[in-house]
């Protein structure tokens, strides 16, 4: 016996046309991709700023050649402590030449080149670590008058700026998601209204709410997935261009920042765009599909409540 096409009367291709919803979801996904890219970029810059300039600490040791509280000179004792402190990557004592070069503008103004200068040690600490505060009492004990300067004012301000940029990006994503949910709800309600007689009939023939909601949600979820894919693909060239323009701010070395890009090679794209951004672009279509599916399930089930 011939097998016939499955028809349950919902005619979802009429209720939820395939052009309108994917286009809107694509636009929303595009905006979300840009907002998320902004957030990821702000996070990256925040990491660089807080773990770059802010990670350098200056230690001044007055009378470096005076005897320390224990044995040896003050500068030797301080360097020994710094060398054995976890979290400190390098502790470089500036040479006399480096020091005088640094102080040249002031020394030349006073015309006095024989001033007793303290020893200056430039300390680089590991990312996310600040071992200096607990160290200060020990340094004070062996070299009274020692000064530790951690120039975190700018890095703190930059970190605050990055945090506010991230918050703005998050807010933008939330707004885009809210608009997308509203669009899906409106489209679903219009579809339900279009097919209300068929829905009422299959409801009276014993169709479960889960069946009707599932049929609508599958359709909307698929359309939203397609829309999300379109939005991600549309955002990719723009994000590549923006990442390329932002390379001087995000590259580790000058060579990386100015290196020419072979745009025909997709592997080169992966070097330009942060990996988190690529993963975000991949995750966007399923996230759009899932948002559409869940929103439609809830909308249809709420609408069906009007039926007994």
């Amino acid at each position: 016996m011939a097998r016939r096409r499955y028809h349950d009367g919902l005619a979802l291709h009429q209720a939820l046309p395939g052009q309108f919803l994917p286009f809107l979801v694509a636009a929303m996904s595009f905006l979300a991709a840009l907002a998320l890219a902004g957030g990821i970029a702000a996070h990256g810059l925040s990491q660089r700023w807080t773990h770059g300039a802010g990670a350098v600490t200056t230690v001044q040791v007055p009378g470096p050649d005076d005897p320390a509280a224990g044995s040896g000179t003050r500068i030797a004792a301080v360097q020994d402590i710094l060398a054995h402190t976890p979290g400190i990557i390098t502790a470089h004592r500036l040479s006399d030449a480096e020091l005088r070069s640094l102080l040249a503008p002031w020394i030349e103004q006073t015309g006095d080149a024989s001033l007793p200068l303290p020893a200056v040690i430039e300390v680089h600490t590991a990312a996310g670590q600040d071992p200096m505060p607990p160290l200060l009492p020990r340094l004070e004990a062996i070299a009274p008058g020692v000064m530790v300067e951690h120039d975190s004012v700018w890095s703190d301000r930059l970190a605050a700026l990055a945090a506010s940029l991230q918050a703005c990006a998050l807010l933008a994503v939330l707004i885009v998601m809210t608009v997308a949910v509203c669009v899906v709800m409106a489209a679903t309600r219009a579809g339900l209204q279009t097919r209300r007689q068929a829905i009422a009939l299959i409801h009276s023939l014993g169709a479960m709410d889960s069946y009707i909601a599932g049929r609508f949600a599958s359709r909307v979820g698929l359309l939203a997935l397609v829309g999300g894919l379109g939005g991600s693909l549309a955002a990719l060239p723009m994000l590549l261009a923006m990442s390329h323009l932002a390379a001087p701010f995000s590259a580790v070395t000058d060579a990386q920042a100015t290196a020419p890009v072979d745009w025909r090679d997709p592997r080169a794209w992966a070097d330009i765009v942060p990996h988190a951004l690529l993963w975000m672009l991949l995750a966007l279509p399923p996230a759009a599909g899932m948002t559409g599916w869940v929103t439609t399930q809830l909308t249809v089930r709420a609408w069906l409540r009007r039926l007994p």
Binding site: R3, R4, H7, G9, A198, L201, I202, L205, G206, A207
Partner: peptide
């Protein structure tokens, strides 16, 4: 209350399809 966009066959088959009977 027949569905105008379904054939006679599909209209009559509707209750059985909602019960997930074999085609």
């Amino acid at each position: 209350r027949l569905l105008p966009d379904l054939s006679v066959f599909d209209n009559v088959a509707l209750p059985l399809r909602l019960q997930h009977r074999a085609e």
